[in-house]
Design a binder for these strands. Structure first.
Lengths: 178, 178
DNA sequence: TGCATATCATTAGCCGTGCTAACGGTATCG
DNA sequence: CGATACCGTTAGCACGGCTAATGATATGCA
């Protein structure tokens, strides 16, 4: 209502975004618990699936978390059989992380489940409103200073399955795994 | 770009929102660490400040968390002098939580700090884009099945400082505190 | 009245996820 | 060959979700 009647106050925008993000995640937390995929793992896995194999460090960078955090996250994915850790061909210090075929399946299943759960909620939104959400998500990603193509791959899928900074030296294979 | 050219796929919307929320919160987590106010505490405190005193249970409901979680959250706020726990006048089982004046100050300071940190990022967005974000935040709140007026109080402030479900029987005093 | 049940909040304990610090192993450069 | 830099892991801390169990109070019914 009031939001479009005037120039939005950045303070307000920040607060409302903050609040919305918190509540959205609290909701999703409950949902993805059913597949055993938590939000952070799902997010990391999706980067692997859509972006192809990459090193742990680059994955951490893409997800904007510290290396130890990503290491633990990857360990969880590996233990669940959703990803593999492999030695880097050229750099002995590095580790290449690859989504397993089961990882792809589970990502898709989790995705479908999440959608099923959200379907009732999203149903009451118009196409224009969905558009608004998509646009906002894009803006948030931009504002969060992420490598943008990673995130647009989320939607584009076939258009750009790899992103510039990651595949040049770390994967070596070309992203066709499983 | 492509998002406005067709009817958005709910799956896509869900994924992108999910991802955006994760990354936004990861960013904000770093920011509000400087004031000692974490995201969850800030969110709860803001409900108290904008909504007035309420019981713990209702606060938990408003924030969509379990009672134990909110109890711990409130304990943290109380220990930091940002809120008070008081016995309920009519129901001995209940506890009324009230934001202290310092709580209001700190909320405002944390808010300002968060905004200062986000200023560079939000600066690169147009007014229309900010509008998009605000609209999206509202949609997310709606979709997250929250009591809507709580959240609109975030923006409206003076317009509706109380929200229907909370003040009828739990506060007893009338919401004018401090 | 008195006991059973329901409700509100707290405590206890688990898990996941963020961090920094410290460490081991590898590359790289002098 | 030794010093230094870099990558990843381990260790340990804090926080915030949750469920289960415990007090304490209200309520309802015999």
């Amino acid at each position: 209502m009031a939001s479009t009647l005037r120039s939005p106050d950045p303070a307000e925008v920040a607060d409302r975004l903050h609040s919305a993000a918190i509540h959205l995640l609290r909701r999703v937390r409950r949902i993805d618990g059913e597949t055993g995929l938590t939000a952070a793992r799902l997010s990391a896995l999706s980067v692997l699936v859509f972006g192809g194999p990459t090193t742990l460090g680059r994955l951490a960078q893409a997800e904007q978390v510290s290396a130890p955090t990503m290491s633990r996250l990857v360990s969880a994915l590996v233990e669940e059989g959703l990803a593999r850790r492999e030695p880097h061909a050229e750099d002995g210090r590095s580790v290449v992380v690859t989504a397993s075929s089961r990882g792809r399946e589970v990502l898709e299943r989790g995705r479908e489940r999440r959608i099923a759960e959200l379907a009732d909620l999203l149903d009451e939104l118009s196409a224009a409103e969905l558009d608004t959400l998509v646009a906002a998500a894009g803006l948030v990603e931009r504002v969060s200073a992420l490598p943008p193509s990673v995130r647009s791959a989320y939607a584009g899928a076939t258009a750009e399955r790899r992103w510039s900074g990651l595949s040049d030296d770390s994967t070596g294979s070309g992203g066709t795994s499983g």
